[in-house]
């Protein structure tokens, strides 16, 4: 069961811009076992999506993978050529995007888009592809799947569309699904349904999941482990329950404290003061130091390593202690 599926080591993605090179993520390392579900959380611009795209070798130009290795089931994706990547994308690793409105092609029927995905990776007839498509639509609990296949995306509701997107991600029985904020564009009631569905499907088909989100509530529902990212680095990593209960990094603590559930009704929400530094001028020392409540001199000058502390990895000079 605990077979290593994905191992990312020292990943660094650089965007050479006119004003100088910007390192979007640096020194990102993590591992994922077969069937394991992890969450990557952080503010906008922390490098969550870049990490996901880097795994699929789809960083948009002019960005490139400067260093690091991505080992997926024995294959180094960082070194893989375009042909090999195409065999892996959509086949062994699928991706779910944020807005189902945008990810389905408006002029093709659901069926065409699903069949196409299967035919790109499997040597089957169109009829068989259609059968698989119907089967997966049923798996994501879409009623009267046969008729849905001949409909266009605009004929479906938002939640329905995201179900179709998930069905497309499942078509080729992938080992890993990367979901980039899959519920942000949906309203709250649908969100819960979709998350539950995603969780059930991952369990049923033994699929690994990387869930990218800024919503800690979402992560805590679905994942087993959390990576917290800040300014392109992983700053805390550990099991979901322990991080939610006892966040050791001041930033993680701030994030959890900022949840509306954590405030008394009528009071102002707890914000983390300040904004995340721009990737072009990350402060010296700990990148979080100018927003941190527990700042000491050493934080300004020395970057904390991502070190193991109890069952956790944490990059902070003075992690919060719990008894």
């Amino acid at each position: 069961m605990d077979k290593l599926l994905l191992s990312v080591k020292n990943l660094e993605v650089v965007f050479p811009l006119r004003t100088g090179a910007v390192t979007a993520i640096r020194d990102v390392s993590f591992e994922l076992n077969q069937g394991e579900r992890i969450g990557i959380v952080g503010e906008s611009g922390a490098g969550k999506s870049i990490t996901a795209f880097a795994i699929l070798n789809l960083i948009s130009k002019p960005g490139y993978l400067a260093s690091g290795s991505i080992e997926f089931d024995g294959i180094d994706l960082a070194e893989a050529d375009e042909d090999l990547m195409r065999q892996i994308r959509g086949n062994r690793i699928s991706m779910i995007f944020q807005d189902p409105m945008m990810t389905l092609n408006p002029v093709l029927t659901i069926g065409t888009q699903m069949e196409e995905t299967i035919l790109a990776h499997r040597d089957t007839s169109r009829d068989d592809a259609r059968k698989i498509a119907i089967e997966k639509l049923k798996a994501v609990q879409i009623p009267s799947a046969e008729t849905r296949l001949d409909q266009y995306p605009h004929e479906l509701s938002g939640g329905m569309r995201q179900r179709v997107v998930i069905a497309i991600a499942l078509l080729t029985d992938p080992q890993l699904i990367v979901a980039d904020e899959p519920t942000t564009a949906l309203d709250v009631t649908i969100q819960a349904e979709i998350l539950e569905l995603l969780l059930d499907l991952c369990n049923e088909f033994d699929v690994g999941l990387i869930l990218i989100t800024h919503d800690l509530g979402v992560v805590s529902q679905v994942t087993q482990r959390i990576l917290v990212m800040y300014a392109g680095r992983i700053i805390e990593q550990g099991s979901t329950s322990s991080i939610i209960e006892n966040p050791m990094h001041p930033y993680t603590k701030g994030l959890i404290g900022a949840l509306p559930e954590m405030t008394t009704p009528g009071e102002k929400l707890n914000q983390i003061p300040g904004v995340m530094p721009s990737l072009q001028d990350i402060p010296s020392g700990c990148p979080f130091h100018n927003r941190c409540r527990y700042i000491q001199d050493v934080c300004r000058s020395r970057l904390p390593d991502l070190a193991k502390r109890e069952e956790r990895l944490i990059a902070c000079h003075f992690p919060i202690q719990y008894d």
Binding site: L56, L58, M85, R86, Q87, I88, R89, G90, N91, S94, M95, F97, Q98, D99, M102, T103, L104, N105, P106, E116, T117, A120, H121, V165, I168
Partner: peptide, 17 residues
């Protein structure tokens, strides 16, 4: 620039398709 093109790439389709 629309996401369905990204999605098509993620599915593993060739540029021609």
């Amino acid at each position: 620039k629309k996401e369905y093109v990204d999605a098509a790439r993620v599915i593993g389709l060739k540029p021609r398709a």
